[in-house]
Design a protein around this nucleic acid. Structure first.
Lengths: 217, 217
DNA sequence: GGGTGTTCAGTGACCTTGTCACCAAACAAC
DNA sequence: GTTGTTTGGTGACAAGGTCACTGAACACCC
């Protein structure tokens, strides 16, 4: 069983294509906090993530940041695809959040795969589709959704099965594209209601139900 | 000279591909205000615009709207590409703003073209690239840019060579993803400064320089 | 012409969010 | 312990969004 089977869309590749892909790609490992691509640093390979996550974010002229989306294990970093073929520079930045293992497919191999395999084409276009949808959601949230609701959603999302979130107010602000003070105020309000407890760098969810209720409203 | 030459990225297609494209595609005309795609209405063809513009916008649950981008003559409506191959539904909506003439490429032909021609692949991926970049810009503007600046930019953009903008406050609000009242207040402030004159449905730019200055700040 | 309904814009009160300047507590390093 | 850095708290104010309501401009009809 090769890494290919970790990718839904690739499991049905014909053997010839499969072998070509295995031959032409190589597995790379990057440490946490590596900038994988960014302004003036366009990637030479399409990356398929095996382990770790990549955070894609945008920084404004004034230095404020916002997280656009994350690439998880089993997904491809399609933003780079566009660079691969269209040679365009993005203002966004991709950062490995954890140590990350990925399959790197060189430009020429990528082009040949898109040409030769309908399955690979579907894989690529599906990935694009998902990213664009993600961006639509981000736009809608920023433009129309109240911040307390978005913050509640983010807390639920970040704590997973745990009951604590390890993050600073500043980092949460970047996730939501807002200012640190605003997050601090909202968290204080949550605390006042007895929903959370805070210490420096950690937020403990006490009343997950209430937070969840707000998140869904 | 065929319509193909209206598209930068397609002018260098080899003759065989060119002929295939001409044979398989057909030219369609849709009247103004037609919904070309939308939730539950996925398109069967890739559209390349010959004349007119298509406005792509998103509507929130609460009914508020925001314009995401526009497709102009000479561009392709790639959002549909994703639907073509990935069969995914979008929450966004594409509307012909004016009477629109376009080349329609059926799904199967699109797939074959992507497979057979590196030039066509580049054309498609470049278009994707541009749209994603557009969305990044929208996100940055909404999240970080002041509304008076964005409104000034929009006025300059909409008036073109004329000195009047034909639009209601409500439509401007949708362009910027804000509320009508906010636009009204800002325009009043512009008027108070002597930058514009307003009548129902029209805004006349009097001091274009000052508006431009604000737009660039 | 006058009457009627619709679209568009103006208004004030109020709430949420963003900004600025500054302070204090927690932590890290020496 | 002393010192510097990171993190979070605070208050005042500005900007933007919401709500409820008003009136003006326009289209249409007799």
């Amino acid at each position: 069983m090769s890494w290919i089977d970790q990718f839904q869309g690739l499991s049905r590749l014909p053997d010839a294509i499969r072998n070509y892909l295995l031959e032409e790609s190589k597995i790379v490992t990057v440490p946490a906090n590596t900038v994988i691509f960014g302004p003036g640093k366009s990637p030479e390979n399409l990356l398929l993530l095996l382990e770790g996550t990549v955070r894609v974010q945008q920084t404004s002229d004034a230095g404020r940041e916002i997280v656009l989306y994350r690439v998880h294990a089993g997904e491809s970093c399609v933003l780079t695809t566009a660079c691969l073929l269209a040679y365009e520079d993005y203002s966004a930045e991709g950062i490995a959040e954890t140590q990350t293992r990925a399959v790197a497919i060189p430009r020429a191999a990528f082009d040949k795969l898109v040409s030769d395999s309908i399955e690979f084409r579907q894989f690529v276009f599906t990935a694009y589709s998902k990213r664009i949808t993600d961006l639509f959601v981000v736009i809608e949230e920023i433009a129309f959704r109240r911040l307390d609701i978005r913050l509640a959603q983010k807390l639920i999302e970040l704590c997973g099965a745990e009951d604590t979130v390890l993050s600073t107010h500043q980092k949460l602000a970047v996730e939501l594209g807002t200012a640190r003070e605003v997050v601090s105020r909202q968290l204080q309000e949550f605390q006042r209601r007895g929903w959370i407890e805070q210490t420096r760098g950690t937020i403990r969810l006490i009343d997950r139900d209430e937070i969840g209720k707000l998140a869904k409203s």
